[in-house]
């Protein structure tokens, strides 16, 4: 018994070392995935972000057809980067709705003019309240929502060309 006790410190240390080594291999992750995936999208009604597009409400996400909700902002640099990909998705028949975070109508309009416009509707979320209720933690982020209004997939960060198959598959599965 006493023998074992003498080796206990070394064993505790080995445990600690294991945790540290493990931490080195996979450091604390910075991204916080939404826990809303797999559940009904939150209830919300957002006014139009620009005069050219209607606003967005929970009801628009449950019209029987899967949609992509893109959370973006005119002041967000990676949002510009994903525009060509979103436009390509739109050309493939994907219905895309935007939620503009902390944005002014003229800035959103200029953003659409300069970088393209993949959106059917754009809601304006000036104090990120709807973004928070989606469990989203930054811009850009996108959610695949099925015809019944249930969230099927969250994509954190800008959608790149490589991510398209995954998004399309999720949309298809949501039919």
């Amino acid at each position: 018994m006493r023998k074992i006790l003498l080796w206990a410190p070394l064993m505790v240390f080995a445990l600690l070392a294991g945790v540290l080594l493990r931490g080195l291999q996979s450091p604390e992750s910075g991204t916080v995935p939404s826990k809303m995936v797999g559940r009904a999208a939150p209830d919300f009604v957002l006014p139009a972000a620009v005069p050219s597009h209607p606003g967005l409400a929970r009801a628009d996400l449950a019209r029987g057809k899967p949609v992509l909700v893109n959370i973006f902002a005119s002041w967000c640099v990676p949002c510009i980067a994903e525009m060509p990909v979103l436009l390509a998705l739109k050309r493939q028949g994907v219905e895309i709705h935007g939620i503009a975070i902390r944005d002014k109508p003229e800035d959103v309009a200029a953003f659409l003019r300069d970088h393209g416009d993949p959106y059917a509707r754009i809601g304006s979320d000036v104090s990120s309240q709807v973004q928070i209720s989606f469990g989203s933690s930054g811009v850009p982020e996108s959610f695949v929502i099925d015809g019944s209004g249930k969230i099927r997939l969250q994509h954190i960060g800008d959608i790149q060309q490589d991510d398209v198959p995954e998004i399309l598959a999720a949309l298809k599965a949501a039919q």
Binding site: A73, W75, C76, V77, I101, R102, D103, K104, D107, V126, S127, S128, G138
Partner: peptide, 14 residues
């Protein structure tokens, strides 16, 4: 990460 600020002021009760 380089993240810009928006041009909107703080939320009402921030």
């Amino acid at each position: 990460p380089v993240q810009a600020d928006s041009r909107i002021g703080a939320a009402p009760l921030a």
